[in-house]
Amino acid sequence: MEQQIQQFGAGPRELYLPEMAVITEVRRLTELETLYTVELPGGRDLGHKPGQFVEVSLYGIGEAPFSISSSPTRRGSFELGIRRVGMLTDVLAGYAPGRKIGIRGPFGNGIDVSKFTGKDVLIIAGGIGLVPMRSLINYVLDRRDEFGRLIICYGSRSDSELLFPDELAAWEKDPRTEYHVTVDRGTEAWTGRTGVITTLLPGLALDLPNTVACICGPPVMYRFVVMALRGRGLPDQNVYMSLERRMKCGVGKCGHCQINNTYVCQDGPVYNLPDIAKLREAL
């Protein structure tokens, strides 16, 4: 610790100043969710990994973390899928293409896709958890030959809340994508499966040692999905999950995102199950 004091001249980089980026496209997904395409100055790549997040600033309103929904394989801009749940997202919902927003990041560890290479990839997404998982899904689709099977399990409260309907339809048609969807309560028009997301798991044919699972969804979902995957015999070390916490600063300082001894903005948001299975605050 004494040595740390000697290092003050190092000239640390600016941590809290956002870079201004432009919203180039706004696509309404549902009544509550919108997909924003965002371009950094000069069309520079964000340089992210699937599973990472950015801090979005609206000056005068505030700053909040959002996971990146596009794959780094899609160059020149990135996408944020955002639900209206508060002041910042309400204001953002009124934004049209051409508006500027501040961006800090990408932050967090993201998914180490090298651990998924050659494996069957099982995606389990609940509700808005599909937004970050879409980054991984499109990454696998864009580099399809580097991975085994792509199995997508998607659960939503209602068919009226299903996100990215065009893409869901494309996954359903794609012979190399196994797409399963269920809704908690369907509208009258719904002809598909009804039930919580864990009901999709028992029916899957899985090559267990060769399968990696990645989970993202509402807090209540994780422990039940983990129980179901353990029930299927999938080893814990093959299970990854992206966790949500209040990542206020994104740089490991403000303390809000801490789960026991881990900072989600630094060590997460993507965790391998054995690393957090013993953390009582995690799931």
Binding site: M1, E2, Q4, I5, Q7, F8, A10, P12, R13, E14, L15, V251, G252, K253, Q266
Partner: peptide, 22 residues
């Protein structure tokens, strides 16, 4: 203060703290 030095220099060193501490 030595503990805060550790927290503000490890990971992402923070200019605001370090400048004031200088």
């Amino acid at each position: 203060v030595r503990r805060l030095d550790f927290n503000f220099t490890t990971g992402n060193p923070e200019r605001n703290y370090l400048a004031r501490r200088d």
